[in-house]
């Protein structure tokens, strides 16, 4: 089986990975790097649980091949905050009680993070639209919306 050496930046650290041609970024993160905050669910671009930032843009890591990423920069949920120092957005999710089972939350946070980096004060319709690729099976959408609004309102403080 032919393998490819890929050098890329993950959460600001350089990494070299040996991957096969069809291995996804998601599987490389979870199985090779032990970055299990990025969740695997549908593995076909429907649910957003696997959302990461690729060169600053939100993408489904289940639809990106690791081989495509030579020289790229990837940010996962582990690069956004740590348990002892959560990001403002993660704090807002907790403050609004937006986390139920939690499975969709890393993807939600990554999608919301990309949105707020792009537009610090989005309206509700924009937030809904930009999170429409992220499914929450606990259906906590209203609280997730409020969490993003809360983080957005704190953005200038």
């Amino acid at each position: 089986m032919s393998s490819h050496r890929v050098t890329l930046d993950i959460n600001g650290e350089p990494h070299s990975l040996d991957v096969t041609a069809t291995q996804t970024l998601l599987d490389a993160l979870r199985w090779q790097l032990d970055l299990t905050g990025t969740k695997k669910c549908c593995a076909e671009g429907e649910c957003g649980a696997c959302t990461v930032l690729l060169d600053g843009l939100a993408v489904n890591s289940c639809l990106v091949l690791a081989t495509e990423l030579h020289g790229a920069s990837v940010t996962t949920i582990e690069g956004i905050g740590t348990p002892s120092s959560l990001s403002r957005l993660q704090d807002a999710f907790l403050a609004e009680g937006a986390v139920q089972c939690g499975f969709c939350i890393p993807g939600m946070v990554m999608a919301a993070h990309a949105l707020l980096a792009d537009q610090p004060h989005p309206d509700a319709a924009t937030i809904r639209d930009r999170l429409s690729g992220n499914l929450c099976r606990c259906a906590g959408y209203p609280r997730i919306l409020r969490a993003v609004q809360l983080a957005s309102s704190q953005a200038d403080e």
């Binding site: 671009g45 690729l54 843009l57 939100a58 993408v59 489904n60 999608a111 429409s132 690729g133």
Partner: peptide, 9 residues
């Protein structure tokens, strides 16, 4: 087409 995550790729 898809979601923002899809359209970014």
């Amino acid at each position: 087409v898809g979601s923002i995550q899809i359209r970014n790729r």
